[in-house]
Design a protein around this nucleic acid. Structure first.
Lengths: 201, 201
DNA sequence: ACATAAAAATGAACAACGTTCACATATTTC
DNA sequence: GAAATATGTGAACGTTGTTCATTTTTATGT
């Protein structure tokens, strides 16, 4: 049976992913070392390259799990609100909450860069796209005249705007707002933007 | 005279900064090597550490110059528009234009991270803060009831939102919009937000 | 069941990086 | 001009990610 080989390989992969996830959570993406991860996973240094092409691919899998958790958090929060404005605000709040509660993992999601010339694989791009889909539905209610392509563009823009507000506020580069101010500032932003959409169409 | 010593030191510093700037422009921050920079600057590898504490400090000085150029570009563009809505849209357009025309240098501005535990020096934080000041004045016209602290918070939020839209659109992680779509999408965003501010106060 | 082939795990070795340091050179001071 | 001080040099160091000959494990054929 070749199943045993498959099981062992899969076991090694998941041990490496878990070890990497843990290291990222505690030390950040920049603190991730191949030697630490393999030691934590209980395998040799070279074993990484039997399970993954390189460290980047391993990181991609950690990010994949983080995206799934983020997606679940958004889904869970959005379920409570039916009206588009309330739903968009709930999504923004959930996004901020996830970023706060999973700082390092969330940062790794956007900090990570592939080697020059190597594109992000399609399966991972697709996982990012799912996030934006959460915004399409409420936006469609606010902008019933728009087609699917335009709606998608607006959803990506709104996502990027919220993402930017959360990102810069959580960075050291700018003097950050107090945590409570950040949340009210973010919610005020979404509220104002929705008001603008309603007033202009 | 101790002036000759000072002049030599300053000459080395500026040669290193220029070499680093050039390397970042062509290869990005991740492609910056101490050996390349010193070779370009015509000095020994170790000379970096007589002029700067480490590579991070050198990068900070490159970013400082980039920030000055970005500030000048914003100033220049904003001068044309008097009305707050038009000025905010001009600023957003100028920001996008600068990011496009100086891709690598602009990316380095936000990609760079200090070593763990080392804070970004105050003089560099102040340079970032200047960018946000450009937004305070037009926002004050739209929101005359707000105090200085609240106004600053709104300015930072708006800056972050615009920054996020530009950043994510220029990244490989998400399927990017066509360049022309990005600009119209960004301008529509600012327009809508201003409409929201005007409608809600 | 055993021998043989194929695959995977190992960890020492490699190359590339930022940084340091004993030494050489240049500059200032007396 | 000589002693003292500061600055520039590049070989060497420690730490990376990655590779590769070797060993160990797993699968296959009779």
């Amino acid at each position: 049976m070749t199943a045993k080989r498959f099981a062992r390989r899969e076991d090694l992969r998941s041990r490496l992913i878990e070890a990497a996830q843990s290291r990222i959570q505690s030390s950040g993406l920049a603190g991730l070392r191949a030697r630490d991860v393999t030691a934590d996973a209980g395998c040799a240094l070279g074993a990484i390259y039997t399970a993954f092409a390189d460290l980047d691919e391993l990181i991609l899998h950690v990010n994949s799990i983080t995206l799934a958790r983020l997606g679940a958090a958004l889904q869970h929060q959005a379920a409570g609100a039916a009206a588009p404005r309330a739903r968009l605000m709930a999504l923004a709040k959930a996004y901020l909450g996830f970023a706060r509660d999973n700082r390092m993992a969330w940062t790794a999601l956007f900090e990570h860069r592939m080697a020059p010339g190597v594109p992000v694989p399609d399966w991972h791009l697709a996982e990012h796209a799912v996030l934006i889909q959460h915004l399409v539905e409420p936006l469609a209610m606010l902008l019933p005249a728009l087609g699917a392509a335009e709606l998608l563009a607006r959803a990506r823009t709104l996502f990027s705007a919220v993402h930017g507000i959360v990102t810069i506020s959580l960075e050291d580069r700018f003097i950050g707002l107090a945590p409570s101010d950040l949340e009210s500032e973010l919610l005020n932003f979404v509220d104002t933007l929705v008001a603008g959409i309603e007033s202009t169409g």
